[in-house]
Structure formats: C-alpha cells, structure tokens
C-alpha cells in the first residue's frame, strides 16, 4: 500500500519536475511546479509527516504559486519562440546535472544506511502537530523568534523593492 503510493507519487513528481524544466510557456511551468509540490506533499504523508505535508501544500502549492502566477501575469510573459540553443552550453549543463544525479545515486547505492527498512512506530497515530509545536516553542524557540524577524525584514524589503523609483 505504502509501496504503491511511493512509486506513484515519485513517478508523478519526477514527471512534473521535468515538465517544469521542459515547457516553453511560463504558466505551464508554474502549474507543473504546483503538481510537483503536491506529489512531494504526498510523499511527506507516506513518511508520517502530516504537518509538514500540510505546510507544504499551504505554503508552496498555495502562497508561493499564487505569487509566481501573479508575477507571470504582471510581466505579461509570452511563450518563448525561436530561441537559439547554444549547444555547447546546453550539453555542458546537461552533463553537470547528469553528473550530480550519478553522484547521488552512487553514494546512496553504496552506503549501508540506505538499506534501512521503514521502522515501525510506537503509536498507531502520531500527534505530530503537537510534537512539532513543542519542539518549535521549547528547544528551537530562539530560531523561531529569529524567523519572525526575518519575515518582517523580507516584507519591508519587498515593499521597498517594488516601489516605482528606487533611490
């Protein structure tokens, strides 16, 4: 059951991630990104991380995607047509990302810990919103406060950047 879900959502995630890269139309890129993030959230659910999965859907598939689509509409981007492909740069980039994939696969396939099976949990249903909340507000309280300041700084920075004239 979990096995089937893993393979389906991994296949869909990789497919839509390739579509993000391959499509010429920016709106199709953004919508493929939504689908890839939804499949990733489903993978989080298969890992018993329901809270992280829901945050992923809310923040990425919701807020970030609305932002991306809004900017695409604002800039009025058209489908790229007739672009020249610089073949040496293209194959260089393909080689780099292929080398990265090979490197990760080689390390994962050779390491002992990657053969670890899914360990059973002590309880049938984990209350992970409470547990993550406890971790955030006790052990990691200082980073939690700092992240609030970071979000404020980002908000002020965005407002400053998007004014008509930057002095």
């Amino acid at each position: 059951m979990l096995n089937v879900a893993f393979w389906i959502f991994t296949f869909l995630m990789v497919f839509f991630a390739v579509m993000v890269i391959a499509h010429r139309n920016p709106v199709s890129n953004a919508l493929s990104l939504v689908m890839a993030f939804l499949c990733l959230a489903a993978l989080f659910f298969t890992l018993d991380a329901g809270f992280i999965g829901i945050i992923q859907i809310l923040v990425y598939a919701g807020a970030v995607m609305v932002l991306f689509l809004f900017i695409i509409m604002l800039l009025d981007l058209k489908t790229e047509r007739g672009r020249r492909i610089n073949s040496s740069l293209f194959f260089g980039g393909l080689l780099m990302s292929g080398a990265m994939a090979y490197l990760v696969a080689a390390v994962v396939l050779r390491s002992k810990i990657s053969e670890r099976p899914l360990p059973p949990l002590a309880v049938a249903k984990i209350d992970d919103v409470r547990e993550v909340g406890m971790a955030l507000f006790t052990a990691h309280n200082l980073p939690f406060q700092v992240i609030g300041v970071l979000l404020l700084a980002a908000t002020v920075g965005v407002v400053l950047l998007s004014r008509k004239e930057i002095r």
Binding site: A17, I21, A105, P117
Partner: peptide, 23 residues
C-alpha cells in the same frame, strides 16, 4: 521501502532542479 528509495527520489528532484537552473 528503504531509506535509499527516498534518497534517490530526492537526488532525482535535485538534479532536475539543477538542470533547470543551468539550462
């Protein structure tokens, strides 16, 4: 399912993202 399955999925996603940034 093993840890390796998830790490390979993660590596594939990372490489596709890298390809997008480079290409």
């Amino acid at each position: 399912l093993t840890l390796g399955h998830y790490l390979l999925a993660s590596g594939a996603l990372f490489s596709i993202g890298l390809a997008g940034v480079l290409l």
